[in-house]
């Protein structure tokens, strides 16, 4: 469960989250809609611990993760974040990109997870390549692989279907849906086109600065 309690986040004078309150229940799939620039991405970044908050608190599974004074490190929150753009590290190979989050795990577990994810995402032949050598669709799948290989409990997706063709959109939707069902994760999907995830029967909420309606 993710609970946001009176969370306030501002960029200078502009208040984006104004005593924001909402609870994302465990194993739920929530689609957050709203026009561009309203604060949906900021919400995800606050939950992930990537941005500080001015007030309030974020609680994940009974643990306070964000307050004004402190924040739990993003890597300790068991969450995965899919950015709008792949954000692959250009100096690492695809294999190194994917395994980065598993470097502290035993070798056998790493290889097992890698084999599973590259099979489901059909990227086995890309492992030795670098991001600059990948097409847009390949980069998107590698980025998903990097996020999902750690089997996060919470999956945050920031407009992941932007700039994708129909075929690739369907691929991504299928991958996320399979993951949600298989791992019983809590998914928060930000979009400005709620229709794109209607096939997954999410709970659709509209963003406003004080909460989701």
């Amino acid at each position: 469960m993710i609970s946001l309690q009176d969370v306030t986040k501002a960029y200078g004078e502009q208040v984006v989250l104004d005593r924001f309150c909402h609870v994302f229940t465990t194993h739920s799939f929530t689609a957050i809609q709203g026009p561009s620039g309203i604060g949906k991405t900021t919400l995800l970044q606050v939950i992930a611990g990537l941005l500080p908050i001015e007030n309030g608190r974020v609680v994940m599974d009974d643990q306070v993760t964000n307050t004004r004074e402190q924040a739990l490190h993003p890597a300790l929150r068991h969450l995965g974040f899919v950015f709008q753009f792949p954000a692959l590290w250009p100096h690492l190979t695809v294999r190194q990109n994917i395994l980065y989050g598993l470097m502290r795990q035993p070798h056998t577990l790493r290889e097992e997870r890698l084999a599973e994810i590259i099979s489901s995402l059909e990227i086995a032949d890309l492992l030795a390549k670098r991001p600059a050598e990948l097409s847009g669709g390949q980069a998107r799948r590698v980025s998903l692989a990097r996020t999902l290989v750690t089997q996060p409990r919470y999956l945050l997706l920031d407009e992941p279907l932007n700039n994708l063709d129909t075929r690739l959109k369907d691929q991504v939707l299928t991958i996320v849906s399979d993951y949600w069902h298989k791992h019983q994760a809590t998914v928060i999907w930000v979009t400005h086109e709620p229709g794109e995830v209607s096939g997954l029967s999410p709970v659709v909420r509209t963003f406003c600065p004080s909460g989701l309606v």
Binding site: L50, A75, L76, A87, W89, R146
Partner: peptide, 13 residues
């Protein structure tokens, strides 16, 4: 791109 750093911070404490 700060997302390159964030992506690492999400995976490595």
């Amino acid at each position: 791109d700060r997302e390159l750093i964030w992506a690492a911070q999400l995976l490595e404490p």
